[in-house]
Amino acid sequence: MPEMTFTEATLAAMREEMRRDPLVFVIGEDMASQGGVFGQFKGLAEEFGAGRVLDTPISETSIVGAAVGAALCGARPVADMHFADFVACAMDEIVNQAAKARYMFGGQCSVPMVLRMPDGAINSAAAQHSQSVEAWMLHTPGVKLVAPSNPYDAKGLLKSAIRDDDPVLYYEHKALFKTRGEVPGEEYVVPMGQAALRHVGSDVTIVSYSLMVQRCLEAADELAADGIEADVVDLRSLRPLDWEAIATSVRKTHRVVVAHEACRTGGVGAEIAAQIGEELFDDLDAPVLRVGARDVPIPFSPPLERFVLPGPADVAAAVRRLM
């Protein structure tokens, strides 16, 4: 199977979907000359022209709002948020427009758009370019959320997101862009709402998504050396959520750690822990633990940044607390 980077995998998805459907278009900043700030759109302007790769002014409300409007009128925009932190500038367009339009208009319309959300901390980008903000949107019914952890899923989930008739937020961790992995040459999609078991064990369940899955796998290897075998469930989608995958694993292991890079309080992990507590209480032998960043903005200085972010050691430590 050919290998490619996460970025190349997303580009392959974009090219395939734009060739397949002339109503798919890209809208965002720095598209034409740079192919997006991280190059995830490189070459698309050359292949599809300025009419389908729209290079906007620095106008986040317009990028998202116009994407919603175009989607309401039958187009299929893929909008780019540059850095996921900037979504704060376009919050209304997601929360009050994209997420609510179909519902408040009684199903008259749909909003088939994708919003690309490069998130997460990398290289001391500091407080306003490093945050993981998926929990904001998990708390917003009406949008779907996906968060791939590797190039294969990056391509397959992006294709699913583009084909889906509902608004999908596509969280792509910036530290994943250059990672490599196997990606089939032939056509495939990864359906939303299907988790993947990345590591198999019967002692503990580690639930994660996005870059943090890689950290959890490192932790699982370290734990295996000590004879602790972990299931690592890569959620891939946060909504729809593959509850069966979580429940199946928890019924087997009876111990759970939920791990993400976003800060702990009010995070996705809190929600999953609550659902496990409500529905699988009798299966648990220990409290559900959360691993996440400390509850501060992401700091600049490398030792500060390292201290705040969760790593494999934090995951392993949480697991050991449960055993």
Binding site: G51, G65, A67, V68, L72, A75
Partner: peptide
Amino acid sequence: FSVGMLGANGIVGGGANLAVGAAIAARL
């Protein structure tokens, strides 16, 4: 939507970008 009325909006100023998007869709 059957007559192209894309919705009243409880967010003051919320319709402006939607109209821009509608025009983009028309152009596309």
